[in-house]
Design a protein around this nucleic acid. Sequence first.
DNA 1: CTAGGTGCAAATAATTTGCAGAGGC
DNA 2: GCCTCTGCAAATTATTTGCACCTAG
Lengths: 327, 327
Amino acid sequence: MSTTLQDLSRLKPSGGKRSSKREQIVNVFLRQEGHLSADDLVDLIRQEDHRISRATVYRTLQWMVEAGIARKVDFGEGRFRFEHSYRQPRHYHLICKTCHRSFEFLSSDIEALVEEVAAARNFSPSQSVVQIYGVCEECRTGRSSAPPDGHSDLLFARDALRIAIATERSGLEFYTRAARTTRDARGRKVFQDLAREEQEHLTKLEARYRDLLRRDPQLESRPTFLFFKGAAHGLFAEGAERLLRGVDDQQALLIGIRCERGSHRFFKKYGERFEDSEGKQIFLEFADEERSHLDLLVREYRALVKRQGRPRRALRQGSGAVRAGAR
Amino acid sequence: MSTTLQDLSRLKPSGGKRSSKREQIVNVFLRQEGHLSADDLVDLIRQEDHRISRATVYRTLQWMVEAGIARKVDFGEGRFRFEHSYRQPRHYHLICKTCHRSFEFLSSDIEALVEEVAAARNFSPSQSVVQIYGVCEECRTGRSSAPPDGHSDLLFARDALRIAIATERSGLEFYTRAARTTRDARGRKVFQDLAREEQEHLTKLEARYRDLLRRDPQLESRPTFLFFKGAAHGLFAEGAERLLRGVDDQQALLIGIRCERGSHRFFKKYGERFEDSEGKQIFLEFADEERSHLDLLVREYRALVKRQGRPRRALRQGSGAVRAGAR
DNA sequence: CTAGGTGCAAATAATTTGCAGAGGC
DNA sequence: GCCTCTGCAAATTATTTGCACCTAG
């Protein structure tokens, strides 16, 4: 770990001179994990070198934030803390009021709702803070069940794979079912092909997941970092449900298109947010995969419409059962 | 408004002496709306009385927080602000980085996700902070489309009613549909009765909503304060969808039970969170209503099982189409 | 040699506190 | 009269800045 960190202090900084002091401070900072206050950092530095001034630490901290190495976070203690931001996308926090440690998580679900709220208020959001205050397991029960947070790179990768696998599974279910219910021969073949592809890809992803576990045996027991319901409960699963209610071939294709588009967007968005890492790679590869399925489905849909004529009715949006809202 | 505020400074405070200074500060604070910093308040006070010390303002602010009149909020500006907490449940904030004003909202949806995250991490949450930073409509477009935030009591009431109405509508849809598909005569009658009840109650709620609008003509154009998707998209709507896929009588009752239980819980929870107000009343009344439906359905379900014997299979949970998750 | 980086001490800014006097009950 | 509130000034805490000096490019 520290090997790459060594480079970091040289690589990342955009402006400014190299200086032993700054480099030293950056290194000490990056060697820590968790959320340090300026003062914590001063103490740590002083253990190595007694003659570094508090002002320099503050100035370096400021520079690290500008350079994108650190992020300033406010846990309402009346002072700021700093966390690594290199290879670490913006995230939310659980903050223990007892031990004052904090734990990180990402929730695509919450982010989506936050965006909806902002949109409903005609507010253009640039950043959001979610902090859950309370008491952590360790402080409550006396002992920790989960191993200490490893470096989150592997966690990203794990959660990325889990989500990809869950999506792949529900995609497989969807295409298998769609292939059964599609009357049009050519349409049926498309769904069958896609189902086969999903099956193959699923196998690959599962192998990759096992591979990841081999690299860190405790990985599986670490808590979820990235929360995303869409994978298991939304996207294809919802589409598959809808197939059960009976739809025609064109509708089935449209549902597939909608699912692949949602999936593609999700994976693209998160893939782009991560700095170079295995998780990013998994997300982006998966996004590409979904994109190509999407294109295929769109082509097929157009072809089918050309053969069968315009659909008789528009596809219903959303769950569609009840159109609610007062007045 | 100010009439009740006069009492407030006498009513709420638990410990401490009455004093003209404190009373004066509390009154000035309560007369304002928005989020004041200690300094803002000092300035305001000084306009009335030049001889009040900054320390007294700080001390009074602290006392107000303890007494539950004010809440200390941190918008990351390096100092705290204070907001009314009397008759105002904890909420989340949209914070404009340009004009530094902030806007409030409540989201049952986000709260639910926050709780899920905490549970997944074995964290026992006591409070959560959600802040959306960005630029408000007014700062972006130059003009405000929405009228200024009125006192939120009426907003609560409006949103409570909207949610109740949406739930009632989807409940009506559900029971109507259930009555059609139920074979068992007695079960059918139960659903018919419930549908009729929902219809009646719906009419009442709509009348009440119109009444509310009469009291504040701008009310409808104010932005949503309480976000809750469950009303329109979840709860009964999902149940109604499931009916379309074909279920037997026992399952229909179980779905109804599940819906009423979710609905009852939601309204109870929010009803309890509000201090005495019209919105609270609406929520709690509605919670009672749902409770009685719930009890009725449970009785009917038991009776039906007694007549027909145990169900042959358990009701599937969730969307149930795909059981996902890696490994 | 020159733009930054660094140390030190002083400055800010928000908030708290010690202490003596004022005021309510 | 006692206990709490108040004002004022001084203390505290986190962070920033002015300025003289030092150092890498």
